[in-house]
Amino acid sequence: MTDETAAVNAAIEGELRLLDPAVRSSRAEVARLLDPEFTEIGASGRRYTYAEMLAELPDHPGGEADGPRYEPSEITGVLLAPGLVHLTYKTRFCGHWARRGSLWRKRDEGTGWRMYYHQGTPVPPDVG
């Protein structure tokens, strides 16, 4: 396995973990996966910081074990530079689609890969 493949696979694994209700509902797990300099522009258009996401993610949709789940598809990634991976994919949640992009970075061996930036864009029903 190449370094690029390993990096992309690690970022995808982290992304999928953040969509898992068990992880979303755990501030400790989310803290392990988000970079301290994390920011997000949500599908709602709202901007989130690291502290806001840690505080609010457990209460966001997709965090309940018996509730609806995000269904990811078409996940692809590319290593932009050593320690920086860009992922793109789509999610379906309660019948609504969004296109998503994330930047994952690895600053040192001790912390592993963490999400540095995320953006979600709603897909209107008449757009594929």
Rank of each mutant, 00 (worst) to 15 (best):
G63K: 04
P122E: 13
T5Y: 11
I41N: 09
R107M: 09
V127K: 11
G128P: 06
R24I: 05
L33M: 09
T39P: 12
F38W: 08
G45P: 05
V8T: 06
S102L: 01
E56C: 08
R47G: 03
I75C: 07
A6T: 14
A55D: 15
E109Q: 08
K106L: 09
Y48F: 14
A11N: 10
G110R: 13
L80C: 13
D66H: 13
H86K: 12
T91L: 10
I75S: 05
P125Y: 06
T76Y: 10
T111Q: 11
R105H: 07
G63N: 01
G101T: 14
G63L: 00
D108T: 02
E15C: 08
D35T: 04
A43D: 10
G128F: 04
M1H: 11
D108M: 03
D3V: 13
P82L: 09
E64S: 14
P125R: 11
G67R: 10
L54Q: 07
F38A: 11
Y116V: 01
P21W: 04
G128H: 05
E64W: 12
L18K: 00
R32S: 08
G110E: 12
Q119G: 03
P72Q: 06
L103I: 08
D35Y: 00
P61H: 02
T5P: 02
T88F: 07
T121M: 02
N9R: 11
M53Y: 13
Y50N: 04
R27V: 06
G110N: 11
T91A: 06
S25K: 14
E52F: 05
E71T: 14
A10D: 06
R107T: 12
Y50A: 02
V123T: 13
P124Y: 03
D59E: 11
R99L: 10
S102Q: 10
S26P: 01
D66R: 14
C94Y: 06
R46S: 10
M53E: 15
E15D: 12
D20A: 12
E29Y: 02
E13I: 06
P21N: 06
T2A: 09
E29S: 13
D3H: 13
K106S: 11
R27T: 09
Y89V: 04
R105Y: 00
D35A: 08
L16N: 09
A6W: 04
M53R: 15
D59R: 12
F93S: 11
Y50H: 15
L33F: 03
E71A: 14
P68F: 05
R32L: 07
A10F: 01
A98R: 13
D59L: 07
M115I: 05
W97D: 15
L103R: 11
P61I: 07
L54K: 08
L16T: 04
R17Q: 15
E64V: 14
L57M: 12
L54E: 05
L16M: 09
M53Q: 15
M115E: 10
R114V: 03
G95S: 05
I75A: 07
E52S: 15
G128Y: 01
T76W: 09
P72R: 02
M1T: 12
D108F: 01
G67H: 07
S26V: 03
P21M: 06
P72E: 08
E74V: 05
G62Y: 01
E56Q: 14
R32N: 09
A22W: 03
R69G: 03
I41L: 10
E29P: 06
D126L: 08
